[in-house]
Design a protein around this nucleic acid. Structure first.
Lengths: 125, 125
DNA sequence: ACGCTACATCGACAGTTATCGAAACAAGGC
DNA sequence: GCCTTGTTTCGATAACTGTCGATGTAGCGT
């Protein structure tokens, strides 16, 4: 198995605090096919109600992280929760770490900021 | 037919400039099932590369609007373009208006702002 | 070693979605 | 009226996605 995370977003690594993590604001110029593909993957990850709730649960949890046991009460089975968390992880929105029996998930702030920047309106134009 | 837009987001109408259009920031508190359902619909609409490109083309076009003929060059057939535009419209992200032979699409700024707000990080906490 | 708990993966199924070609519809010019 | 151009709708199909139960794996406690 060796969870070598083979599907993390390629543009995640070089993300700093002021570097453009993936794309310019949607309103700035037409997206290329590549940019659209990258950005759509992130939006799609949040395009499911269960995933959105899980993400919100992690993001709003004390300390910015939560173990699966804390957030499993969203009305679907445990395997389904695990499936969705994996999707969020593959989209680069969450990271996970095992500590003893439990696995803790936390949000990736830079990606969240990147998506927010995508949706900014034209300053004044 | 009578295009009585029967599927516009219910929370679109009462949106002002400072009222919460749908949900608090994702990081503020766990989303309810209802909130998640509403917000996920918007994210899902942008979760497709073709739709994202179309949306970006409209949003970045001169005057904030574009006719279908201006944005049909995204690599899919014309019916498919129309299909995606319809989806974006149903999600409340675009509005359309027919002027003579052409149909013009423009972005709904309030919804864009709402999604941006959803993704804001905790101010300082 | 054994069982128990927390979490992940597998395999299958149902529902949804993206895509196309063909056809219908709308507006304008002849 | 009829034809041309632009756009939407229709019907069909292939691919994807969410969901589950069963099973597998990792760590803790006895």
């Amino acid at each position: 198995m060796s969870n070598a995370n083979a599907k993390v977003l390629p543009l995640l690594e070089p993300v700093g605090q002021d570097t453009a993590p993936c794309c310019p604001p949607l309103t700035e110029r037409p997206f290329s096919a590549e940019e659209a593909d990258t950005a759509a993957r992130m939006f799609k990850a949040l395009g499911d109600p269960v995933r959105l709730r899980l993400f919100s649960l992690v993001a709003s949890h004390e300390g910015g992280e939560a173990c699966v046991c804390d957030i499993s009460d969203v009305g679907v089975s445990q395997p389904t929760v695990s499936h969705h968390l994996k999707k969020l992880k593959e989209a680069g929105l969450l990271t996970s770490e095992r500590r003893g029996t439990w696995v803790y998930y936390r949000v990736e702030p830079s990606v969240l900021a990147a998506m927010g920047r995508l949706l900014t309106l034209r300053p004044a134009a």
